[in-house]
């Protein structure tokens, strides 16, 4: 189908951000820095979750928003990171910081194994293969001894930074804030880089992109691996914060929540994705009393966005 070609191609964002966006960013940064000082532990906890989702959604946004690939097993890479940290610190006594590069390598390898065969095919296949992959990772985590089986791993070591042990909610809030800022910085730079433009091109017209010499498969694989690495780092920090992880934290539902965050705010746009991530982090708090209706509400939100506002809640004005 050549329908993709009909959609108006979005130009890459201009190099200089408008003054209002910068001002908004500064205000938001000051507020987030001050938050744990002026609020209670509950608010800080929810805000930490929101920052975790900001990282995960930005990572998935590289795959879905930039390269236009649907990944339905994103939580699997999150699990790869969390389990790498969990196993290495709890079973082998590794230092927390050393587990991060190991997790990044592990996520890269997993990304190559899944991505290489499927990215040559239609993008639809990736969706279903990643769905299967997400399940495989969960089943493996449930059934191996080293991952602690269905009950998971406990006693994951808390990270120590320059002799200071991170253990309070506020500590992890700031740790996730730093990770979120790094992720935003990476996304901003990659968005305007050569590879960022290649992603955009491949997304709008694969044939034309191939025609000017872009290696479609390799470009897509890079997006997929970059997303995988970001999720795995988030997983490392998550494991350190929780000190206990179980396979049930990495279900298909988790992957869907992250995808909803990306779609809700506006695929491919950093401010929109951040907004979406914060919204999905608040969702369980808002829907506390909804019980079994919660998945339905999530589902209706996703469908409604796709049908009535496909460019998200905070779309790009120029498109």
């Amino acid at each position: 189908m050549s329908d993709e070609a009909k959609a108006a191609p979005a130009l890459p964002p201009p190099a200089v951000m408008s003054r209002s966006v910068v001002a908004l960013g500064v205000v938001a940064l000051i507020c987030t820095l001050a938050l744990p000082q002026v609020s209670n532990a509950y608010v800080t906890e929810v805000a930490t979750t929101a920052l975790l989702y900001v990282v995960l959604c930005l990572g998935l946004n590289i795959v879905v928003g930039y390269a236009g690939l649907l990944d339905l097993g994103y939580a699997a890479f999150f699990a790869v990171g969390a389990y790498t940290t969990g196993i290495l610190t709890a079973e082998f006594g590794f230092n927390f910081w050393l587990t991060i590069p190991v997790a990044m390598v592990a996520a890269c390898i997993a990304g190559i194994i899944i991505g290489t065969p499927t990215l040559r095919l239609r993008s639809d296949y990736l969706a279903i293969v990643t769905l299967g992959f997400g399940e495989i990772v969960r089943i493996i985590a449930r059934n191996l001894d080293i991952t602690g089986g269905a009950s998971g791993l406990v006693g994951i070591e808390r990270p120590v930074l320059f002799g200071f042990r991170l253990f309070q909610v506020q500590h992890f809030y700031y740790a996730f804030l730093v990770l979120a800022l790094i992720t935003i910085f990476v996304c901003l730079s990659v968005e305007r880089s050569r590879i960022g433009r290649a992603w955009l091109y491949v997304r709008y017209d694969e044939d034309a992109a191939a025609g000017i010499g872009i290696n479609r498969v390799s470009v897509k694989l890079q997006a997929y691996m970059m997303g995988a690495v970001i999720a795995s780092v988030a997983g490392c920090l998550y494991a350190a914060k929780m000190t206990a992880i179980s396979p049930e934290s990495f279900t298909f539902a988790q992957s869907l929540i992250i995808l909803l965050g990306v779609v809700l705010g506006g695929m491919g746009r950093i401010p929109g994705v951040i907004l979406g991530a914060v919204l999905v982090a608040l969702l369980p708090e808002v829907l506390r009393g909804a019980g079994t209706y919660r998945p339905l509400v999530t589902a209706v939100a996703l469908l409604a966005i796709m049908l009535f506002r496909p460019s998200g809640l905070w779309p790009d004005k120029r498109v």
């Binding site: 329908d3 995808l259 209706y293 919660r294 998945p295 339905l296 589902a299 996703l302 469908l303 049908l307």
Partner: peptide, 27 residues
């Protein structure tokens, strides 16, 4: 409504439809 939209939108819509049925049955 999304038949002529980019493929990604169609896929996510299909996913949404799946989740609505699944969530509805759960509820």
């Amino acid at each position: 409504p999304v038949r002529n939209a980019p493929r990604l939108s169609i896929l996510i819509t299909a996913l949404g439809a799946s989740m609505v049925l699944n969530g509805g049955a759960l509820a």
